[in-house]
Simulated assay, not measured.
Amino acid sequence: MSSSDIFIGETIGTAILILLGGGVCAAVTLKASKARNAGWVAIAFGWGFAVMTAVYVSGPLSGAHLNPAVTVALAIKDGDWTNVPTYIGGQLLGAMIGATLVWIAYYGQFQAHLTDKEIVGGPGAQATTAKAVEAQEQGAGPVLGVFSTGPEIRNAVQNLATEIIGTVVLVIAVLTQGLNDKGNGLGVLGGLIVALVVVSIGFSLGGPTGYAINPARDLGPRIVHALLPLPNKGGSDWGYAWVPVVGPLIGAAIGAGIYNVAFA
């Protein structure tokens, strides 16, 4: 496959992944959304279906990595790093496009949410719960969770370990599902299985950090959050941003190593 196919496929696929995944977070979070307060089950299944849709759309072009951790794991497995920058470039651009589309689709809800005094408070308002105080101190704005992840308990070692463990599970699942007939990614059945694995990771391991398990999924939308003209949006929590990037990359290396030792 050509470099242009890879870049286009990963850009489109990751944009769809973030549009649908970030979209379910917006639906559950934002004021005046019909799905507000639908809960964690909706989020876990929403992200799983987002993965499935993105894999089926981008698979024929790029093999549907959609995740720098998957790209790195496949490079370690095969020993071929030639197209890694192309994959990751498309993934990061696609993630930013997808996050921007979420903002457009929910524009009115973002405006209503971020101008509601019950949510953002009035001039000089103070956070009243321990978690809200911590978020305020760390610079995590009230809609940052629509765009990127954040920890329930801020402990860098635990947060990093959680992201590593979740990514190891994802990477082993991807690698053991085999490659499609082009030899570059998941086939139809593999895409469905991996989507269900993502749902399982969300249910079982998503509680502590929001299960980024994908550096582009977290970093691209976080950049968009920082750039968008959202009223009262607060900070983008850059102090935490390294965890959902470094953790999944470490998990990718560990997962690929386990695969090469146990399965290859």
Rank of each mutant, 00 (worst) to 15 (best):
I8H: 03
I8L: 14
E10T: 01
E10C: 01
G13K: 01
T14W: 01
L19R: 03
L20V: 05
L30H: 08
A35K: 09
W40E: 01
W40K: 08
A42R: 12
W47V: 00
Y56C: 05
L66E: 00
T71Q: 05
W81E: 12
V84S: 12
T86L: 14
Y87M: 09
G89Y: 12
I97A: 10
I104D: 08
Y107C: 09
G108K: 14
Q111W: 13
H113R: 06
T115V: 04
K117F: 10
K117A: 11
I119H: 02
I119P: 00
G122H: 06
A125Y: 08
Q126F: 07
T128I: 10
P142W: 09
V143T: 15
G145D: 02
F147M: 07
E152R: 15
I153S: 11
I153L: 15
V168K: 00
V169C: 04
L170S: 00
L175D: 00
N180G: 05
I193Y: 09
V198I: 15
F203E: 03
S204G: 13
L205A: 13
G207A: 15
P208H: 12
T209W: 07
N214V: 10
A216Q: 08
R222D: 07
L227E: 10
P231C: 14
S236K: 06
S236G: 13
Y240W: 15
W242Y: 13
V246R: 00
G255I: 02
